[in-house]
């Protein structure tokens, strides 16, 4: 296995996530898609660490660890927002929540 295998896989996964984020209406699915993109990025980080010059420094896992923690925080806040929005609009459809004012 070479670095390129992992890079191409990560690019593919990232674009699947992008596609989901662009094409779905459901806010929760959009959140899924963002998670997929984040994971693809993590895969890249680990692959660069593994095939990089100085793996003993453990920079890849460290960075990924931080990214995972931030992603967890992001999901928690994101889902809380989705629930708050759902309570307001009775829907998680992104095309319904297109107003800036309270109706």
């Amino acid at each position: 296995m070479t670095l390129h295998h992992y890079l191409i896989l990560a690019a593919l996964l990232f674009c699947i996530g992008l596609m989901g984020a662009f094409t779905r209406r459901n806010a929760i699915v959009v959140l899924f898609s963002v998670e997929i993109m984040l994971n693809a990025a993590n895969l890249n980080l680990i692959a660069f660490w593994r095939y990089g010059d100085n793996p003993a420094l453990q920079h890849g896992p460290l960075f990924t660890l931080f990214a995972i923690a931030v992603a967890a925080a992001e999901v928690a806040v994101g889902l809380a927002l989705v629930i708050a929005v759902y309570r307001h609009f009775r829907s998680v459809d992104l095309e319904v929540m297109d107003t800036l004012k309270e109706e």
């Binding site: 690019a11 596609m19 662009f22 209406r25 095309e95």
Partner: peptide, 20 residues
């Protein structure tokens, strides 16, 4: 199931894939 601009979404995703 899909959003209004789903076609352009697909196009952008494909373009990003090529760029990556």
């Amino acid at each position: 199931m899909t959003s209004r601009g789903w076609f352009w979404g697909l196009v952008v995703a494909a373009a990003v894939f090529v760029v990556l």
